[in-house]
C-alpha cells in the first residue's frame, strides 16, 4: 500500500507532487481512488491527502459566477438551492451519482480528475461553460473544462498541478438546463448514456444552447453542432430531434457490459431531445420550479 503524505497547504501538495512526479496520487473523497488501489488500477508510491486544504471546498456566488471549489462534496452541490436555481443540470447530475454515502464523500474535483468516461458531473458542468482553475508551481491557470480531458482516466494536468475550482458562468435571465441518463438500475449505477443540455431564450427563439454527453466517448463531449441545430429556432420536437441526431452522430460509444454501441447511440438521440425539451421548458418557465426531471426524462415511476 502507498504511504500517505498530508500537506498543510496547497503549495506543499504541489511541491510534493512535483518532487514525486508520477508516483504521488492526490486523494480527495477517495471514492474512486480506493477502488483503483484495491483492484490494482492505480499503484502510486504516495497518496497526497487533500482533505486539509479546506479553502478548496465550498460554493461561492458573486452575483455573476458560481465558483465550485474542487473539494466540494457532491452531496453539498446536490442539496444547494442556489445551484439548483442557476444550474439545474448540475444538481440533477449530482443527485444520481452513486449513493448518498458515496456523494457525501466524493468531490466534484475528484469526479472530474478521475476522468471516468461515464462520470456524471462533467457534462452537466460543460453545458454551463465551466472554466477549470488549475494551480501549479508557477501559479494558477484557467482553461475550458473540456480542455482538461484527454482520454479515459487521463487529463491534461501536469504531475505537479491540481484542479482547484470550476467556475460556471452566470445564468442568463431566461435559461434552463437538464441532465438525464440511461442506466440498468434506478440508483447506484453508472450511466450507460448521460446527457446534459442547456438552453437560453429571448422569449421567442433559442438564443444559445449547449449539449454535452458522457459514457459514449473516451472523454465527456461538448457537441457544438447539436446545439447549433436549435439556436435561432423555437425549440420544437423537430429541431430537438435534429440536434439529437447530430449528437448521436458525433459520439463514439463502445460495447461493454453496460450496453452495446448501437444501443447507446440510439439512446443518445432519445435523451438529447428530451433534455433539450426540458431545458427549454425551464427557460420558458413552463417547468415547475424546483422539480427535478425524471431520471431518463419520462418515467413517472409511481406505484399504486
Amino acid at each position: 500500500m502507498p504511504e500517505l503524505y498530508v500537506p498543510a497547504q496547497l503549495e506543499d501538495a504541489l511541491g510534493f507532487m512535483g518532487e514525486h512526479a508520477g508516483l504521488a496520487l492526490p486523494v480527495a473523497g477517495g471514492t474512486d481512488v480506493l477502488i483503483d488501489l484495491r483492484i490494482g488500477r492505480a499503484t502510486p508510491k504516495w497518496l497526497v491527502d487533500l482533505s486539509p486544504l479546506e479553502a478548496l471546498a465550498g460554493l461561492a456566488f458573486d452575483g455573476e459566477t458560481l465558483r465550485i471549489g474542487a473539494l466540494t462534496r457532491i452531496r453539498t452541490i446536490e442539496l444547494d438551492a442556489e445551484v439548483a436555481r442557476r444550474a439545474p443540470a448540475v444538481v440533477e447530475a449530482a443527485r444520481v451519482l452513486g449513493s448518498v454515502q458515496i456523494r457525501t464523500m466524493a468531490t466534484v474535483g475528484g469526479n472530474i480528475c478521475h476522468a471516468t468516461p461515464s462520470a456524471e458531473m462533467p457534462p452537466a458542468l460543460l453545458v454551463h461553460d465551466a472554466v477549470a482553475t488549475v494551480a501549479g508551481p508557477d501559479g494558477e491557470r484557467s482553461l475550458s473544462l473540456s480542455e482538461l480531458f484527454s482520454g479515459p482516466g487521463k487529463t491534461t494536468l501536469e504531475n505537479s498541478e491540481l484542479l482547484t475550482a470550476v467556475t460556471l458562468r452566470a445564468p442568463k435571465e431566461r435559461s434552463g438546463s437538464c441532465y438525464l441518463r440511461q442506466t440498468v438500475r434506478w440508483s447506484m449505477d453508472l450511466a450507460g448514456v448521460g446527457v446534459a443540455a442547456a438552453v437560453e431564450t429571448d422569449g421567442a427563439v433559442v438564443t444559445g444552447a449547449r449539449v454535452a454527453l458522457c459514457a459514449v466517448a473516451p472523454v465527456p463531449l461538448l457537441v457544438a453542432e447539436a446545439a447549433d441545430a436549435v439556436v435561432g429556432t423555437e425549440l420544437t420536437t423537430e429541431t430537438a430531434v435534429e440536434a439529437a441526431a447530430r449528437a448521436a452522430a458525433a459520439c463514439s460509444p463502445i460495447t461493454d457490459a453496460r450496453g452495446t454501441a448501437e444501443y447507446r447511440r440510439q439512446v443518445v438521440a432519445v435523451l438529447v431531445a428530451r433534455a433539450l425539451r426540458i431545458a427549454w421548458l425551464r427557460a420558458t418557465g413552463e417547468w415547475p420550479a424546483g422539480v427535478p426531471a425524471p431520471i431518463n426524462g419520462v418515467l413517472s415511476g409511481e406505484g399504486a
Binding site: 434506478w186 439512446v267 432519445v270 431518463n296 419520462v298 418515467l299 415511476g301
Partner: peptide, 16 residues
C-alpha cells in the same frame, strides 16, 4: 407485476 416501459430507451420500471 405492474411495469412502466420507456419504449424509446427500453428502460423498465417495476411499479407494483
Amino acid at each position: 407485476a405492474e411495469v412502466e416501459v420507456d419504449p424509446d430507451t427500453g428502460m423498465v420500471r417495476l411499479l407494483n
